[in-house]
């Protein structure tokens, strides 16, 4: 079985969307998929945000992009995250990043685990494809 590891360090809608597309596509091909979430991206995995994103393009441009995405029938990132979890994508949140952002381990959404740099390095070393976003 092939294996994909994604390192997500940016909380923008664009990066999160790309991570979710690659993760779900890989799972659809029955690959093992690990997504390591660090830095500011950890907030996306809190119960408060639950996968909701903001565009990095600023308010008006971001609003326009979201409007266009809805018009095209593209799912929201929170819906894609739910599907990715259902499909068996394994998400790991960096505990240091979480605490830096002012959250505790109790604040992360279900089926997401805590991890650190060692876990990422081990999975990345054994992966066929590694993507950093």
């Amino acid at each position: 079985m092939s294996k994909l590891t994604i390192l997500l360090a940016n909380s923008s809608m664009e990066n999160f969307y790309h991570a979710l597309v690659l993760a779900t596509d890989a799972r659809a091909m029955r690959w093992e998929v690990f997504v390591f979430v660090t830095s500011e991206a950890v907030i996306l995995f809190t119960k408060k945000r639950n996968g909701k994103t903001k565009s990095s393009l600023g308010y008006l441009a971001g609003f326009f992009v979201k409007f266009r995405l809805r018009k095209l029938g593209v799912s929201k990132t929170e819906e894609m995250l739910r599907k990715a979890v259902e499909m068996g994508v394994k998400f790991f949140v960096d505990e240091i990043g979480l605490k830096l952002a002012g959250y505790t381990p109790d604040d992360i959404i279900d089926k997401v685990e805590l991890s650190g740099g060692v876990s990422f390095l081990q999975e990345a070393r054994e992966s066929d494809v590694v993507v950093s976003l």
Partner: peptide, 14 residues
């Protein structure tokens, strides 16, 4: 029958 992007279609196929 969906207008969603391929990733969502693929997840429905699976």
């Amino acid at each position: 029958d969906s207008n969603d992007v391929c990733s969502v279609t693929l997840s429905n196929i699976v």
